[in-house]
Design a binder for these strands. Sequence first.
DNA 1: TATGAATGAGAGTTCATTCAT
DNA 2: AATGAATGAACTCTCATTCAT
Lengths: 216, 216, 216, 216
Amino acid sequence: MSSIPPQPPVKRGRRKQARPGELLEAALDLFVEKGYAATRVEEVAARAGVSKGTLFLYFPSKEELFKAVVRENISGRFGEWEQTLASFTGTCSEMIEYAFSAWWERIGSTKANGLGKLMVSEANNFPEIAQFYRTEVVLPGQELIRRIFRRGIESGEFRDIDLEYAIYLVQAPLMQLDLMNSSRVICVVNPDNFDPHKYLKMHADNLLAGLRPRAA
Amino acid sequence: MSSIPPQPPVKRGRRKQARPGELLEAALDLFVEKGYAATRVEEVAARAGVSKGTLFLYFPSKEELFKAVVRENISGRFGEWEQTLASFTGTCSEMIEYAFSAWWERIGSTKANGLGKLMVSEANNFPEIAQFYRTEVVLPGQELIRRIFRRGIESGEFRDIDLEYAIYLVQAPLMQLDLMNSSRVICVVNPDNFDPHKYLKMHADNLLAGLRPRAA
Amino acid sequence: MSSIPPQPPVKRGRRKQARPGELLEAALDLFVEKGYAATRVEEVAARAGVSKGTLFLYFPSKEELFKAVVRENISGRFGEWEQTLASFTGTCSEMIEYAFSAWWERIGSTKANGLGKLMVSEANNFPEIAQFYRTEVVLPGQELIRRIFRRGIESGEFRDIDLEYAIYLVQAPLMQLDLMNSSRVICVVNPDNFDPHKYLKMHADNLLAGLRPRAA
Amino acid sequence: MSSIPPQPPVKRGRRKQARPGELLEAALDLFVEKGYAATRVEEVAARAGVSKGTLFLYFPSKEELFKAVVRENISGRFGEWEQTLASFTGTCSEMIEYAFSAWWERIGSTKANGLGKLMVSEANNFPEIAQFYRTEVVLPGQELIRRIFRRGIESGEFRDIDLEYAIYLVQAPLMQLDLMNSSRVICVVNPDNFDPHKYLKMHADNLLAGLRPRAA
DNA sequence: TATGAATGAGAGTTCATTCAT
DNA sequence: AATGAATGAACTCTCATTCAT
């Protein structure tokens, strides 16, 4: 419609408009790293390069900041993802493998990783936001998996399994990887020499082998 | 309407022996439910039926209380378990299945469930405890799994897999189940109608199918 | 009147009758050493070899314990002392010297030393007991000194000085010595090699020299 | 009778520069008056006209506040004094008299008076501070006195005395005066009619008379 | 808008005091 | 009389939140 006006050269790289975003980014880092309670708003503000007072200009309370962080980082990535899978041409096994690597690229290896841990930790303190996470992340994710499985079963590529429990075959390794990245020291055998790709490959591989139709 | 009967004076119980246990139980519940920071010592004391001051008679600080909870609920559960598996006669597949159900009976379905979540949540705030948990729980558990796998591979019952990553094939579902029980609302499709046994059966079943030697 | 019944052999050296005394003794030690607030009643009880509850059987509160300690340790030593001085035959200088050494023997070198410091420290928190100390110790002591000085002046042995201020010429060194013994590290040049007798000799000597009548 | 005028909203002052000083002043007053333990930080804050939290903006703990009070009121008062005495021209007797009156002007009659009592009272609870006070105040003060005495002895103005004990001839009256001002009720005969100048004059006078060389 | 000094409710901890045994 | 487990008020210290500038 209208022609795009020439963008003014970005001065200083920190415009006022960027403030909330910088705060959210800093908050995400700290919430994931230290948990909700142990994160002090002053620290968030400091990391975003503003004063404590300024933070409260954008977010009315620590609680709202937290909710905003969660919302910001899980917003509608699934629509796009679903589309990709819908138009995917290939076997269901390839779809599963693709889903694993896509998860890693879009979630596991990004800032969004650790959100799972955060939700697990804080779900009881923030039921509302937990519900939001469930609706926006968990259920759509599970639906994605369910659809792939259903297709695989119908096409005879996978054996006939209880869909509602099969979901967790995919979810469990991804969730564990989320937690591992947050507190590697707890779960990982050799924290300094852990390769997430190998981890995912192993899981996908064994999962798919197990899913093959069995001889009577 | 009816007059309130005179409250009998609060009995000052005298149960030095029983107190620590009651406090630890209350603390476990609350720590698992609300996290470390959100749990107030006064609340723990109240749930154990004593006053705030009494708690400090038995535990010198909130942190020591937390440590005691972890120790109480973890130590000594592993030795026994290792013995059982060491003297187990049967196929490796049966051992894996046994391990799953034994975990459920001794950990997953007990108060000790949720401790995994607790550790994941608080590991960064209590490196010392996290290290303790890693040494006393995670690593021994992994060694147990490793041993079974090694035996299965050597006997030809399992295909040849990378042991160091295979471990997680067992660990991931158990950890997820620990988390699920703590914040079921987040991960589970239908929280009111979830059967842990089916969950574990599905996982064990698919895992073992995937582990079978493959045709060249 | 009645014949004294044969004393039963003292068993165990700790009769019930001794309790209050032992508590007072322990309390004196601790109050002097650590001050009122920093002394815990449990510690007092422990040092007296009884339980905390027992202490409260004899003294209704920490405050009353404190008052009892002070009262106990300053009770009527002055009557006896006054008598001694009244019947003293010798010069006033000798009386002053005697007073110094008597103070050392009866107060300075005994448990009662440190009470001065205690009163100085706590006077504002215990006005009532401070008043008591003033009445029972400070004023009688000053009166003693005043009487000696007056006699010395009248007899021409001392020069004519303002009695009301002269008093402090005697009081100051004794008070300093009381404080020194309590917190030697603060005031004393060489704490490990300090001789109270030399200290007192020096003060008495110079004081008396200064008191001699002066040539016009 | 008359209506209460509406209270103006509490002014939130903004005087970062002035705060520490005001807090230190309030703290000095209260510590001297009531002792360390009996002084509540909230009270200090209130006397300085700020809230409890504000105090902790400037001093990280009660202990550090205490230390700061001692440092604030001691440091830097001695250097100047030493200079003055070094360049003093006059007899040693005049120097002693000058020292007495200088002490009164710079310490005894100021806020710094009472610090001696404070140190005596709390020395056992704060060995570190006591050491500091000893090093920074007591020992330099004693050295000052020692130097005057040595000079007086060498010039024949004073008789030959043991320097190490003579020091206390000067220190004792000053210390007593410090204590008197803090808890006058204890030591002083007639608290409402006490003249520190007369007190000091009396002491200086008698001290110097006593120091005069004696006939063989 | 942005600041940061100031606030005050709330948490962990101590310890004089109580009271069932 | 004696005990010591239990209490709870009081204290120090923290930190989310406010508000004058």
